[in-house]
């Protein structure tokens, strides 16, 4: 569906994509995770054929890219990061005009519009102006627009950034439906819960490289202990001095919080119950722990 082999791209001496290999299987939802500046959007632009790689080979739906990028894009759907709907058009006109770019006849697009609007939950909004839509509606319309050519493969660049929880769940639901219908999805995100919920497989990108790849469960099992205790508040230091050496755990201090990764949380919990003022939170390890372990806790601006 999509394959990248040894793809590299530099800007002004800085390697933004530093040798990426990817191979998407039909019908899977594949996630590209990474902090800001990790190379996610550049990877998408390379796969779309908008920029040429300095090295490596890219194939999209069997077409070599960028050489035959236009042919590849004919069978591709893209939901960009920033909403780029046409503010001068109504909801339905946005779909019509976009369909024309794919060489579709107006009659063919008109026949498809009701289904697309229903999918996006915008059945009654066909004649609405874009300015009257909420952020969630706009994103759903962007998704419907990306489906106007009935694509086999979809690229989504941070599809739920800036949306409220209800709107995010609605987008997730639609993406699950698309995968259920056999579409292949490549999605970039920096929300771990999104990746954990949606992605069959994912790759964690940092500094232009894939530093880990697999199913969410595999990544958690491979890179992190199954349980996490987050310790914070008064007395954490003394408690750690007293107990840390005896507990079979890995500790990491980030700001005010100490993360304690362990296989068996029960002994530590028993000790903690007697610890008084200190506060703690117990939870299973998740993708975010893997992500932070691999990419570090430093702020990326």
């Amino acid at each position: 569906m999509l394959s990248l082999q040894g793809v590299r791209k530099s800007y002004g001496g800085r390697e933004v994509v530093a040798g990426i290999d990817l191979d998407l299987r039909p019908g899977e939802c594949y996630g590209l995770l990474g902090p800001n500046g990790a190379g996610k959007t550049t990877t998408l632009r390379l796969a779309l054929g908008l920029i040429a790689p300095d090295a490596g080979a890219i194939h999209v739906l069997g077409e070599p890219v960028p050489a035959r990028a236009i042919a590849a894009r004919r069978r591709l759907g893209v939901v960009p990061q920033a909403d780029s709907l046409d503010p001068d058009f109504t909801v339905a006109e946005n779909l019509l005009v976009y369909g024309r770019y794919f060489g579709l006849r107006d009659s063919a697009v008109h026949a498809r519009i009701p289904g697309l609007l229903a999918f996006a939950g915008l059945e009654t909004r066909g004649a609405a102006r874009i300015a009257s839509l909420s952020g969630g509606m706009k994103r759903r319309l962007s998704l419907a627009r990306a489906l106007v050519n009935d694509p086999e493969l979809l690229f989504l660049d941070e599809p739920t950034t800036g949306l409220d929880p209800q709107a995010r769940h609605l987008i997730w639901d639609r993406l699950k439906r698309l995968v259920g219908r056999g579409r292949t999805i490549l999605l970039t995100t920096h929300f771990m819960d999104e990746a954990e919920r949606l992605c069959d497989r994912l790759a964690i990108l940092d500094n232009g490289r894939i530093i880990a790849q697999g199913t969410p469960e595999q990544l958690v099992a491979e890179h992190i202990e199954p349980h996490v205790l987050e310790l914070f508040g008064e007395g954490v230091g003394q408690w750690l001095d007293a107990h840390a050496a005896r507990l079979p755990a890995r500790f990491e201090k980030v700001g005010e919080t100490t993360f304690c990764y362990l296989r068996d949380p029960l002994p530590a919990l028993a000790e903690l119950r007697q610890a008084g003022a200190m506060r703690y939170l117990q939870r299973p390890a998740n993708l975010e722990d893997v992500f932070l372990k691999l990419t570090g806790h430093d702020l990326r601006d």
């Binding site: 236009i70 004919r74 893209v78 920033a82 046409d86 794919f102």
Partner: peptide
């Protein structure tokens, strides 16, 4: 401003 060209370039238009 509107990024219209960007969205057109995601379609099969150069």
């Amino acid at each position: 401003v509107q990024r219209t060209w960007d969205s057109i370039m995601n379609a099969p238009v150069g």
